[in-house]
Design a protein around this nucleic acid. Structure first.
Lengths: 148, 148
DNA sequence: TATTGTTATACTCTATAACTATA
DNA sequence: TATAGTTATAGAGTATAACAATA
């Protein structure tokens, strides 16, 4: 039963994943910088394009303290990419939402993220399906290897 | 020829890799914090355990400006985990090297990084070999699918 | 002249604690 | 009283520019 954590194959997979992580982050930061955004600002902006979000919830997604979100939204707002709206249901809450320009910036940024797409070009459709199923199982997102 | 960058499988793989990256980073930061180190300090300390390294080269590995390395090494040095040594071959160069305590801390930190080992426990040896070969090809590290 | 490391400066992200306005 | 958001503060990482020592 090959579940050892120190066999050569496992160690190499760990190292390869480390390489993937490093490349992913580097490209993400560069793509953000190309739009004059920091990584944190880019992440928040991307988050808000899904739906207007209370400050508190943004902090949870970012896994940081709520007080930090104030500054990040401040800077995005001062650039006209985000606005604060009142929540009709609870006057304590402020919803952060992207402006039209913010949505446009987020879209262009998303399109510029080539990583994990360029490299995947090396793999056939079958191999990508295989990779998807392996990653799914690894992440415990159900072993269901559905059809491509 | 399935090399599209927008088919459902590719998009899901991209998303899964994003999840892997997020989990990896989170656990790395937590492991570093458990040893009272920042992520950057932990990365540098790990780097130095491979070999004593000139300040300039550390900056290249971290992909940051050399001026930043001064502060990171300062903080590691003030805690007794790292020391600066002269380079006999070039008196301009300072080599950063871990102390015994630094090496010990780096080892304990490395042992505490469970990610990409725990999740891999879900996969059989054959599946891990498969995953390794897919990641290798994706990263352009040679298509050689050597035996497990 | 060019390179290595450092200093000085400014900005962003981070956590902590105290504050306000609502609930 | 409890919660949402903010402010104030301090520490760390980052880039830029200028500097001393050495090559």
């Amino acid at each position: 039963m090959p579940t050892s954590h120190t066999d050569p194959v496992t160690l190499e997979v760990v190292e390869l994943i480390g390489t993937v992580v490093a490349r992913y982050h580097q490209e993400y930061e560069e793509a953000a910088a190309a739009h004059s955004l920091t990584g944190a600002q880019a992440r928040v902006l991307g988050l808000l394009t899904l739906e207007p979000t209370p400050m508190r919830k943004i902090a949870e997604k970012l896994k940081c303290e709520p007080s930090n979100v104030t500054g990040i939204i401040d800077r995005l707002e001062s650039r006209g990419l985000v606005e604060r709206r009142p929540d009709p249901a609870d006057r304590r809450v402020k919803l952060a939402a992207p402006t039209d320009e913010g949505r446009d910036t987020a879209r262009r940024l998303r399109d510029s993220l080539h990583f994990a797409r360029e490299p995947l070009g090396e793999l056939t459709g079958l191999e990508r399906t295989l990779l998807r199923d392996l990653l799914r199982r690894m992440l415990g997102e159900g072993p269901a290897p559905s059809a491509p």
